[in-house]
C-alpha cells in the first residue's frame, strides 16, 4: 500500500472509514443487531400505542361507574361483563350484528369471485389495468357520501324504486336489508383486491394442464383454483367481516331504528358516559375477531391480506 497507493486506489476504491461505514460493517456482520434496528421502531410504536391502549381497555371493562357522581371507580368488578353476557338486549344485538357481518361477507365474496376471475384470467393486460382502477376508484369517494348515496337510492321516490317499479318491484326501504346492501357495497373493493391478487398467483399452466388431462371447467375450478384461492378469500373476508362488525354509522344512515354492537358501544361512551360498560361490550367483537383470526391463520390467510 505504501509503494503505489494511487494506482491501487484507482483500481479498487477503498471505502473511507467514516462512521456510517463502520456502522454498516458492524450491521452486516451482526444479523441480530440488524434485526433489532429494523424492529425497534415499529414494535415501540405498536407496543406502546396499540397494545397498551388495548390492554387498558380490557382492564377498564372490569371497572365501574358510580351512578351518582359519574366517576369511574377502579375497584375490580365483574358486573359489566355479567350484564353484557346475560342481558337479552346484548345477546340479541350480538346475534344481529354477527348475522349482518356474515351476510355482508357472503354477498361480497359471491360478487367478488366472478369479477376477480374476469380481471385476472380473461381480460387482456390493458383492460385488466382499467378494471383495477375502476374497482379502486370508489374507495376515494367518501364512505359517508356513499352510505348517503344509498340512502338516496333506496329512499321513497329514489332511483331504486324508479328503476324497479315498472317491473312491479319496490324498494326495501330503510332497515337491515338496506344496511347489508350498503355495507356490502362499501367493503366490496377490499374483498375484490385480495381475491384478484390470489387468482393472479394461480399459474395459467396449471389450468391448461388440468384441461389437457380432461377436467371440465367446473372440476378445474373446484379442485385447482378454489384450494389455491381459499387463503385469499379468507383474507378478503377478514376485512368485510371486521369492518361490518364495528360499524355504527351506516346503520344510522340507512338502518332505520336498528342497532348494532357499534351503536351500543358508541352511546355508552358518548351519551351515557359509561366507558367501563362500553369496554365490556367491546369485548364481544374483540372475542369474535380473535376466534376468526385464529381460524383464518390456519389457512395461511394472514399472508394474503
Amino acid at each position: 500500500m505504501a509503494s503505489s497507493p494511487s494506482i491501487e486506489r484507482a483500481v479498487v476504491p477503498r471505502p473511507r472509514e467514516t462512521t456510517a461505514r463502520k456502522i454498516s460493517v458492524f450491521l452486516s456482520q451482526h444479523a441480530r443487531v440488524r434485526l433489532a434496528f429494523l424492529l425497534s421502531a415499529p414494535l415501540f410504536w405498536l407496543g406502546l400505542v396499540y397494545i397498551v391502549a388495548l390492554v387498558s381497555l380490557l382492564i377498564t371493562a372490569f371497572w365501574s361507574v358510580d351512578s351518582f357522581t359519574g366517576e369511574v371507580s377502579t375497584q375490580f368488578t365483574l358486573d359489566n361483563v355479567i350484564t353484557v353476557v346475560t342481558g337479552s338486549l346484548y345477546q340479541a344485538v350480538t346475534l344481529r350484528t354477527v348475522g349482518v357481518a356474515l351476510l355482508v361477507t357472503i354477498v361480497d365474496i359471491v360478487i367478488a369471485l366472478p369479477i376477480a376471475f374476469f380481471m385476472a384470467k380473461v381480460a387482456g393486460p390493458r383492460l385488466q389495468r382499467i378494471l383495477v382502477i375502476a374497482v379502486l376508484m370508489p374507495l376515494w369517494a367518501s364512505y359517508l357520501v356513499k352510505a348517503y348515496a344509498w340512502r338516496s337510492v333506496l329512499s321513497q321516490g329514489g332511483i331504486f324504486e324508479w328503476l324497479v317499479r315498472p317491473f312491479g318491484g319496490e324498494s326495501p326501504g330503510y332497515g337491515l336489508p338496506a344496511t347489508i346492501i350498503t355495507l356490502a357495497y362499501l367493503w366490496l373493493p377490499y374483498v375484490i383486491l385480495p381475491i384478484y391478487a390470489g387468482l393472479e398467483r394461480v399459474p395459467n399452466s396449471l389450468l391448461e394442464a388440468s384441461s389437457d388431462l380432461g377436467a371440465k371447467t367446473g372440476r378445474t375450478l373446484r379442485t385447482i383454483v378454489l384450494p389455491m384461492l381459499w387463503p385469499a378469500i379468507i383474507a378478503g373476508s377478514i376485512f368485510s367481516f371486521s369492518l361490518s362488525l364495528g360499524d355504527y354509522i351506516t346503520v344510522n344512515i340507512v338502518g332505520g331504528a336498528n342497532q348494532l354492537l357499534g351503536n351500543l358501544v358508541y352511546t355508552n361512551v358518548g351519551a351515557a358516559n359509561n366507558l367501563p360498560l362500553a369496554a365490556a361490550i367491546a369485548l364481544i367483537p374483540i372475542g369474535i375477531m380473535i376466534v376468526y383470526l385464529t381460524a383464518a391463520r390456519r389457512t395461511g390467510a394472514l399472508e394474503n391480506l
Binding site: 381497555l57 360499524d247 367491546a282 383470526l293
Partner: peptide
C-alpha cells in the same frame, strides 16, 4: 406474533381501536 400485531389494528373493528386509543 409481530405479524399479527401489525394486522390487529385493522382486523379489530374501528370502534374498538377508537375507544381504546381515546381511553389511552
Amino acid at each position: 406474533a409481530v405479524s399479527l400485531l401489525v394486522i390487529l389494528p385493522i382486523a379489530l373493528p374501528g370502534i374498538v381501536t377508537g375507544i381504546a386509543l381515546n381511553n389511552f
